[in-house]
Design a protein around this nucleic acid. Structure first.
Lengths: 104, 104
DNA sequence: TATAAAGTTTCATAATTTAGAAACAAAGAA
DNA sequence: TTCTTTGTTTCTAAATTATGAAACTTTATA
């Protein structure tokens, strides 16, 4: 694994790391409908707003969402909807493989 | 977040978790060429075979690769090539967003 | 001004993941 | 049989990530 390969793999792994948490997946799916603010997402998911804020900042840092301030409110919106389509498609493939492997 | 949503988000997050490590991304990319055995992938990536074996078993558990024993050798092969294509695509989107956000 | 509402950051703690060495198991070759 | 090769598992330590409470900032409102 040379330096360039290493860098590319680290970049991709980093993006997937942002997707590797159920709450963050949930947020992205909610944001597909429309933009939501931190406290709404926190309430919907049943976690404290501090945690919600941190998850959202991870998603933002990974380039998957963006935010927009209006007064005290911070609205987050999805910037990469294709990532979610990918999730659905990949999951389909994985499930099909699993079925095949188990001989069903 | 109701029970069904929770389950679905956990499943998806679990799949992404398998992709959230540079070595595992590297293995998947190598496996796109052709099947490789554990010791070859360990050597190519420069990690001990015990670590390679563990990463591969994670990928297998996630349904992304499959293995086949021949003597003492265990060959792994890719079962979900579309996952990598999508990785490239998603990354493109993310990078583009980042460029836009930085105003370049 | 004083209060309230929305977010972020900090902090300590808990939980999870990763790492590599060493022990172990299985199959083939000398 | 004995040795070698290949993989997996176990173990402990290190590193990373996640959690929730509390402090703090900012903006709006009474």
């Amino acid at each position: 694994m040379n330096e360039e390969e290493k860098r590319r793999c680290e970049m991709r792994a980093h993006m997937f790391k942002a997707l590797a948490h159920p709450v963050r997946i949930y947020f992205l799916e909610k944001l597909r409908e429309k933009p939501w603010c931190v406290c709404e997402l926190a309430a919907e998911s049943g976690i404290p707003k501090s945690a919600a804020s941190k998850h959202l900042s991870q998603l933002k840092e990974a380039g998957l969402v963006d935010d927009e301030k209006t007064g005290t409110r911070v609205e987050y919106h999805l910037t990469a909807p294709c990532v979610l389509e990918m999730a659905g498609c990949a999951e389909g493939t994985v499930l099909e493989n699993r079925r095949k492997r188990l001989g069903i």
